[in-house]
Design a binder for these strands. Sequence first.
DNA 1: TATTCCCCGCCAGGGT
Length: 834
Amino acid sequence: MTLAMLQTPPQSETPLQSVDRYFASIGWKPFRFQRSVWRAYAGGSSGLVHSATGTGKTLAVWMGPILKWIKENPDRSKWNPKRPPPVRVLWITPLRALAGDTEASLRAPIEGLGLPWLLESRTGDSKASAKARQNKRLPTALVTTPESLSLMLTHERLLDQLRGLEAVIVDEWHELLGTKRGIQTELGLARLRKLNPQLRTWGVSATLGNLDDARESLVGVDPVGDVRVIQGYTKKRLKLESLIPANMERFPWTGHIGTKMVPQVAELIAKVKSVLVFANTRSQTEIWYQHLLKQRPDWAGEIALHHGSLDTSVRRWVENGLRDGSLRAVVCTSSLDLGVDFTAVDLVIQIGSPKGAARLLQRAGRSGHQPDAESRLAFVPTNAIELIELAAAQDAIRKGHLEARPLLRKPLDVLAQHVVTIAIGGGFTADELLQELRTTYAYQSLSDPEWQWVLDFVVRGGSSLEAYPDFHRVNVHSGRYIVEDRRRITAHRMNIGTIVSDASMKVKFLKGKTLGTAEEHFLSKLNPGDRFLFAGRLVSLVRVRDNVAYVRRATGEPDSVPRWMGGRMPLSSELSAELRLKIEQAAAGKFVGREMKALRRLFEIQSRWSVLPRSDQFLIERIETRGGHQLFLFPFEGRLVHEGLSALLAYRISRFQKTTFTMACNDYGIVLQSPHRVDIDDAIARKIFSADDLVNDILNSMNSTEMAKRQFRQIARVAGLIQQGFPGRGKSTSHIQASSNLFYDVFSQYDPDNLLLEQSRREVLELQLESSRMFDALDRIERSEIVVTEPPKVTPLSFSLLVDKLRDRVSSETLADRIRRLQSQLEKEADKED
DNA sequence: TATTCCCCGCCAGGGT
C-alpha cells in the first residue's frame, strides 16, 4: 500500500472522487455495473448482484456503504481512527475460512481511504474475549457467518446495537440458497429488519437459474424501497477444453477414476505455474495425488491434497501454498469451490463428470480470478461416455441454462430452533413474532395452526413429551415467551446451526499429529495392520481407542482407500436435458466439437447394435446374459431419480408379472435384472410409466420408513430434540441415531400428527428422491415414443450399468424368494448330474 | 475394458 493511499482524502474531494482515486491506486477503473450498485445503494435500494466469480462484485457492494458514510461525514478533519463509528454494516459469509479473507479484502479500501472504521470478524474461531468485547460494542463493520448471526441474536444486549445497522450484505448467497442454512439466514435477516425497518439488504451471488427466487428470499416479502438485480461484469472470458484420450479406441467405456489420463494431465500441469485439480470424491483425490506423484516423483512437495476430511492445519497450509504460489498443483474436492482468492491459479482441471453446468462454471472461475483474466478449465474424462457431459455442459453454459436452486418450503425444525433463539434473545409475544416470520419468503405462508404447533413444541414438547421437563424449553409469562434457565440457554447456543455431521473418527499418528477424520463406517471394517491411503500418505491402522484411530506410516500397496459416505451428487436436470440433446444430435449424424467427434465411433457402435434415442424417444434395451434377463432403461435423469424410478418400476411390474428384480443405476440409466423374461410390451400397456399415484407407489416400493428415520435424525437435531454436545466433541452418531429413532417411534405411536414426522417424510420425497423430477421424467417418458431394442451385445450405454450391477447389488426380492430360487437352481444342477 | 460419491457451522458476563 502506498503512502498516498494511507492519507485521508483531501477535503475538496467528492466521495465519488475519493473512491475513484482509491480504485486508480489499485490499478482499476470501476466497471459500469459497480457504479450502478453505488447509485442503487445511494438511492436507498436493496439488491442482488450476480456474475461469474472473480469479477469485482465484493468491492462493488462494499463501496456502497463507504460512499454513503463519506458523504454523511464530509468534515474529514473529524475522522478519528481512535473513535470508530458504531456498527453500520454486517457482512455474512458462508465460510469460516472466508471470513478472514473477506475481512482482508474489505479492509483494503478502508485503509486506502483513511476511514476511521473498525472492521472485525466473528465466527466460531473467534476468541471468547473478542466476542465479549464485541457484545459490549460492535465494530463499524462485522464479518460473520449465518450461525454466528443466530448466536448474536441470543444476546439481548446486542440487539440495541444492531438497531443502528444500515446494511446487511450476504456474500455467496447462491451457496446458501435452497438450504437450511439459507433459511436460517432468512430468519436472521427478518429479525435485523425488525430491529431497523430501514435496513438495506444486499446479496452477492454467482449466476444461477432462479434469480427471482434468490432475490425474493433475500429481501423478504415486503422490502422497504425498491429491489435491484444487477448483473455484474459480463465479459469474463472462459476457455473450456477436453483432454481427449490419446487412444480413444482403447479408452474404457466405464469406470470413474480415470488414471489412464495421468500422463496427459501431468503434461498439462507441467506447462503452467499453478493448477487446481478438482475431483468429485475424496478417495479420488487421494488416488490421483498418488498417481501424479508416481508419474512425477520430482514434484514431491510441490503438489498437495485438499479435502474436507483433512485436518484444518493441513488445509490452511495448502491454501497458503496456493496463495503464495509455492504449490504447483492441488488435488481437491469441492472444498476449494469457494473462498480463498487464489489469484495465482492459472488453470483448473476437472476430473470426471462435472454433474452440473453451474458447478463447472464456478470451478472454472477459480482460475484467472481477476476481472480481466481468462478462466481456463480442462476437462478430463474418466470414461468415454463422460465426454458427452462436457459437450452438453458447454451448450448449457452458452445458452445460459444454469441450474436452479429450488427453495425449501417452511421447514419447521429450523423455525423451532429460531423461535428458541429469539426467546433467549429478549423474548417475544406470539403475534408479534408471527408477523415478523411471515415477512420471510420461506415462512410467508406459515399457517396459524402450524405456528401454534411450533409454539406448543418449544413450550411443552408437543403432546407426547409433556411429561419430560427437558423439552419444556421456553416459558410463557403473561403472553411473553422467554427462556430463563441458564443451562438451557448455554445448551441451545452450543447447538445452533443446521449442519448435521456424519459419524467420523479422528485419524492420528501414534506420535500425536492429527491427519484428519474418516468415517466410523470405513474404519470399523479395518483390522489392525490394514494399509490405506489417507491425507496423501500410505498408513496402517494400529488401533482404535476413545474414538481415535491411531496409524503409522506403511510401505507397499494400499489394501483400501477410505470411502467416505456423503451426499450423492446426481447429474443436474439442466445438464441431463442438454445431454439428451447431444445424443439426439449424434443420432442425426451431427458431431460438432472435439468431444463429439471423439465419440463418433462409440455412437456408431451404439446405433449399429441398438439405437441412439432422439429426445422424443425413450430407449429400452433388452439383453440376455448368464446372469439372467436384463432390461436397460435410459431416462438420463441423474442417479437419485433413477434410484427411485428403478424401485418404482420393479414394484409396478411385479404387481402383475411374478418375478423378482436385481437393480442398479447410474446417472444415465437403470438396469433391471430378473430370472424370468419380462413382457415389457405388456408392462408398458399397463402404464408402468404413469405418473398417476406416483407418491403412493414410491412409498410402497421402498423402505421409506427407514429413509424417513434417517432423515428424521437431522430434523431432530436441528429442532433441538437431540443435543450433540460441545462443538467438535460430538456424541457418536450411532448414539444420536438411536435417540432419534426413539423420538421417531414415540411420535409415530403417540403423536402421529407431529409436524416434524410429516416434514421428514416430505424431505425424503423431495430431497432424497427428487420426486418432482421423477414426476417430470415419467411425464416425459409417457409422451415419448418408447423404443425397445434387443442388441446382440452389451452396448456402450448399457455397459457401465452392467458393471455397476455386479458391484452394487440392490435386490427387490425377499430373502425367502432368493433362497427358493437358489434352491431350484441347485436342484437343476443336481438333475444334470443324474 | 477397475476402483465413486461434495461441502459448510457451532459456548462462555464477572472479578481484578
